[in-house]
Simulated assay, not measured.
Amino acid sequence: MSETRAVRSAVATPHQDLHSERGALRGEHPGRSRNPVIKVADLAWLEFEKPDLDRAEVFARDFGFGVAARTESELWLRGTFAGSPCMVIRRGRTSRFIGPAFRAAERSDLDRLARATGAAVRDADVPGGGQVVDLLDPSGFPVRVVHCVEQLPELPGQRPLLLNFGTDHRRTNTTQRPPREPSRIQRLGHVVLETRAFARALDWYLETLGMIVSDFLFLDGQRGRGPTMAFIRCDLGGVPADHHTLAMHLGPGTGYVHSAYQVTDLDSIAAGGEYLAERGYRRSWGIGRHIQGSQLFDYWRDPDHFMLEHFADGDLFSSDVEPGWAPMSASGLAQWGPPATRDFLGASPSPAKVREVLHALRGDNELDVERLLGLMKAMNS
């Protein structure tokens, strides 16, 4: 072997074998746009409507949120980290997810985005003030890009427990007693969405908001048709960003799947889960550790049946890490933990689900019988 070839063979593959055994094949989706309109810096908050703000606030506090602001018609929730709120819940006739708001890196990004899309820059109704551009993604989700004037100050948070490892004894003559209290939320981490227009929506987020893919999932025997799920992060250049700020997958529905909120450590997840269970809330799936993103996770349902995740210890990638590719399967969602539940997978049969599937198969979208059968196989594999 020549010296040049030997050097090349020692260099890591494009995705660096960090997060998947496989990289892209020739001609597959690159997972990024060469010339996006802007590059968003983070997920700012999520927007919901609910008829009972009092009940929503009780769950929010039990789950570990702080209240940033409360009026008769709005509830703004926050974490302990400085920055923007995590969530706004507005009073509405029914419980529904409205859409995500992403944070612009600079105020000038809003002007650039408005010129490119024909939208307008307007004042944002966020505590502390700011400006926003309202968009609509190809799935029909309202998407806001915001630049906030004032940031919420940092609040006291939970301290991680001091742990002993093998012969590394950091704690002596004292016991471990994690408090039985809510897992104090630090920040919003990511949101997961289901869409019938996966490929179009994926390209829109890459081209319009400058996001980049960390991992693609594909259906068994259908890799040639392209991916059916993407874990997407913000492009912060050399600054490492969360493995995914947005995840999307192809499905018969179009809507919210779950959102995830960072807490301190595993003990915070576990003790906070005990606190929730004692108050009658229902765990959807957990505790375990994911594969894509590596997070420690625990999923819960709120009183309106929305799924929320406590997570800790997630992966951080800089922009030079290219996408990994892996087959989609229920068993491939976790390194360890209990098997994924039917509730988490959204696989519980119901008349509404059947109607949703029939509507999707008849509509102008990316779901067909082959894709549907592949998704059903993945949920049971």
Rank of each mutant, 00 (worst) to 15 (best):
E3G: 07
E3L: 14
E3Q: 13
A10M: 15
R22N: 15
R22I: 01
R26T: 06
R26S: 10
G27M: 01
V40C: 12
W45N: 10
F48M: 08
P51V: 12
P51L: 06
E57T: 02
V58L: 12
G64S: 02
G64L: 00
L77M: 07
L77F: 00
T80P: 01
S84L: 10
M87K: 06
I89G: 02
G92R: 05
I98Y: 01
A101M: 09
R103D: 14
R103K: 10
R103A: 15
A104V: 03
R115W: 00
A120T: 14
D125M: 03
P138I: 00
G140Y: 02
N164S: 05
D168R: 11
H169A: 12
H169N: 12
R171P: 07
T174I: 09
R177P: 05
H190S: 11
V191R: 07
L193C: 09
F198R: 08
D203G: 09
V213S: 06
G221I: 11
A230K: 08
R233F: 08
C234N: 10
H243D: 05
T245I: 10
G253D: 11
G255L: 10
G255I: 09
A260I: 03
A270N: 09
G272F: 00
L276K: 00
G286N: 09
I287M: 15
R289S: 07
H290Y: 05
S294N: 11
S294Q: 07
H310Y: 13
A312K: 03
S319R: 13
W336G: 05
G337T: 09
R342N: 12
A347Q: 11
A347G: 13
R355Y: 06
V357W: 06
L358C: 15
N365H: 13
L373I: 06
